[in-house]
C-alpha cells in the first residue's frame, strides 16, 4: 500500500466553458473537391472532435458544446451539452447562406447559457463562438450590424469569436466582422483563419487542445500554433 491509496479528493462541481460552433451548411458545402466534399469532411471532423473531448476527462467535464447550423434557415442542431450527453450530428448541405442570422443565433445562445450559469451559481470561462463558412452571406444580410455586435461583445469580454474560412470563403467579409480581444493589457485583432476542407480533422484537433488550455487558465496567448491554417509553415 502506498500513500496514494489513502488520499481522497473532493467532488467539486466543474467550471464550464461553452463552445458554440456556428456552421455553414449551405449548398456549396456539398461541392465535391479532390478530397471529397466540405460537408462530409466537416462531419468527420465533428465526430473526431467529439471523440477527442470524450477521451480527455478534465475537458469532457468542463466543455459544453452547442452547434448552430445555417443555410437559408437557422437551426440549433445541438443545444449546450457536455460531450458525454450527445452524439455528434450528421449535417446535410443545402440552400443559401444566412450567415448573419446564424452568428446572431450563436451569440444569443451563449449569452443565454452564461445567464443560466450565473443564475445557478456555476463558475464559467469566457464562451467561444467559432464560425465555419465556405462562402459569403446572402444579399441583404446585415453584415455591418453583426460586426458591431461582435466588436461590442468581444470588448465586453462576453465571448471570444473565431471566424474560420474554408476554401472559397469571403475572407474580406470575415475580416470585417472579426473583433478584437484584450489580454495581458494588450489588444489583439482577430483575423479569420483560412482552412482547406481536407484539414478539418487537424483543425478540430487544434480546437479541442486550445479549449482545454483556455478552460484551465484563460490563456489565449499560449494556444498551440494552428498548423492546419493554409500557408502555415512550422
Amino acid at each position: 500500500m502506498s500513500i496514494s491509496d489513502f488520499i481522497e479528493t473532493p467532488d467539486n462541481y466543474e467550471q464550464k466553458t461553452i463552445c458554440c460552433l456556428v456552421v455553414d451548411v449551405s449548398g456549396s458545402m456539398a461541392t465535391l473537391n479532390p478530397s471529397g466534399s466540405p460537408i462530409n469532411q466537416l462531419n468527420q471532423g465533428l465526430s473526431q472532435f467529439h471523440a477527442e473531448i470524450h477521451e480527455d476527462n478534465a475537458t469532457a467535464n468542463r466543455l459544453e458544446i452547442a452547434i448552430v447550423a445555417f443555410s437559408d434557415t437557422v437551426e440549433i442542431v445541438q443545444p449546450p451539452a457536455l460531450v458525454d450527453h450527445f452524439s455528434p450530428p450528421v449535417l446535410n448541405a443545402k440552400g443559401s447562406t444566412k450567415l448573419v442570422d446564424g452568428v446572431r443565433a450563436g451569440i444569443e445562445l451563449v449569452q443565454s447559457r452564461k445567464q443560466y450559469y450565473k443564475n445557478t451559481g456555476q463558475p464559467y470561462n469566457r464562451p467561444w463562438i467559432v464560425l465555419i463558412t465556405d462562402g459569403a452571406p446572402d444579399t441583404g444580410q446585415d453584415v455591418r450590424g453583426l460586426a458591431e455586435e461582435i466588436a461590442t461583445g468581444m470588448a465586453a469580454k462576453d465571448f471570444l469569436f473565431l471566424p474560420i474560412g474554408v476554401t472559397g470563403a469571403n475572407l474580406q467579409m470575415l475580416e470585417s466582422i472579426a473583433g478584437s480581444y484584450s489580454e495581458g493589457g494588450r489588444t489583439h485583432k482577430v483575423s479569420p483563419l483560412p482552412l482547406e476542407s481536407a484539414k478539418f480533422s487537424e483543425f478540430f484537433k487544434w480546437l479541442s487542445a486550445s479549449i482545454a488550455i483556455a478552460s484551465s487558465d484563460e490563456n489565449e496567448s499560449n494556444l498551440p500554433m494552428p498548423t492546419w491554417m493554409t500557408g502555415y509553415k512550422n
Binding site: 488520499i7 481522497e8 479528493t9 473532493p10 467539486n12 462541481y13 445557478t120 451559481g121 456555476q122 463558475p123
Partner: peptide, 28 residues
C-alpha cells in the same frame, strides 16, 4: 483536489444550485 470549492446544494434532482465554498478537504 485539495479543497471543496463548488458544491451542488440543490435538493431537487436534475436541478443545479452551486454554492461557492472554501473548505480544505480533510480527506486529502
Amino acid at each position: 483536489f485539495a479543497f471543496l470549492t463548488h458544491v451542488n446544494t440543490s435538493k431537487t434532482t436534475n436541478q443545479i444550485k452551486i454554492e461557492d465554498i472554501n473548505l480544505p478537504f480533510q480527506g486529502f
